[in-house]
Simulated scan of single mutants.
Amino acid sequence: MTSLNASVWLVLVLALVAANLPFVNERLFGVIPLGPARKLLAVRLGELVVLFFLAGGVGLLFERRLGQIYPQGWEFYAVSACLFLVLAFPGFTWRYLLKHRN
């Protein structure tokens, strides 16, 4: 049972980090420098979509490792996407809603 709990917490922490990664740096996926230009919101949202699928893939790997993968309907993926967007809110707030001193 501890392996299950650890897997759930690891996926949740990974999703939290992945959801905020596009908003806390100016590099593509936190690794690839884009030069002197700032990242556009569209690029950040594209990163968010890719990182959503990566975090979901890690969750799927954990589920496969622990047993049989349960088939999910569209409702599961809609709720997962909404949860991922909620997890991204702190990074979005920090990037776009707070005033930063230069």
Rank of each mutant, 00 (worst) to 15 (best):
S3A: 12
S3N: 12
S3W: 12
L4P: 06
L4R: 14
N5C: 13
N5W: 14
S7P: 07
W9F: 13
V11D: 04
V11R: 07
L12R: 04
L12F: 05
L12E: 01
V13D: 00
V13L: 08
V13Y: 02
L14Q: 02
L14E: 02
L14C: 06
L14N: 02
A15H: 05
L16Y: 11
V17A: 14
V17K: 08
A18F: 15
A19C: 03
A19T: 01
L21A: 06
F23W: 15
F23D: 08
F23C: 08
V24M: 07
V24Q: 04
N25M: 04
E26H: 06
E26L: 03
R27Y: 14
L28F: 14
L28N: 05
F29M: 08
F29C: 01
F29H: 03
F29D: 02
G30R: 05
V31E: 05
V31N: 08
V31W: 12
V31M: 12
V31F: 13
L34E: 05
L34H: 04
L34K: 04
G35A: 00
G35P: 00
P36R: 14
P36Y: 11
A37H: 13
A37C: 08
R38F: 11
R38T: 14
R38Q: 15
R38Y: 10
K39L: 09
L40M: 12
L41N: 13
A42D: 11
V43T: 15
R44I: 00
L45E: 04
L45F: 13
E47A: 10
E47I: 10
E47D: 09
E47F: 11
E47N: 08
V49M: 04
V49N: 01
V50E: 01
V50T: 05
V50C: 04
L51T: 01
F53Y: 14
F53C: 10
F53G: 09
L54S: 01
G57Q: 03
G57K: 02
L60W: 12
L60M: 12
L60E: 07
R65A: 14
R65K: 11
R65Y: 13
R65I: 08
L66P: 09
L66H: 15
L66S: 14
G67E: 03
Q68T: 07
I69N: 00
I69A: 03
Y70S: 12
P71N: 09
P71D: 09
Q72V: 09
G73P: 00
G73N: 04
W74H: 06
W74I: 08
F76K: 03
A78G: 06
A78P: 02
V79L: 14
C82G: 13
C82Y: 09
L83I: 13
F84W: 06
F84H: 00
L87W: 00
F89T: 15
G91P: 02
F92Q: 03
T93F: 14
T93Y: 14
W94S: 05
R95D: 02
R95P: 05
Y96H: 07
L97N: 07
L98F: 13
K99N: 12
K99D: 09
K99Y: 10
H100W: 14
H100D: 09
N102C: 09
N102W: 11
N102T: 13
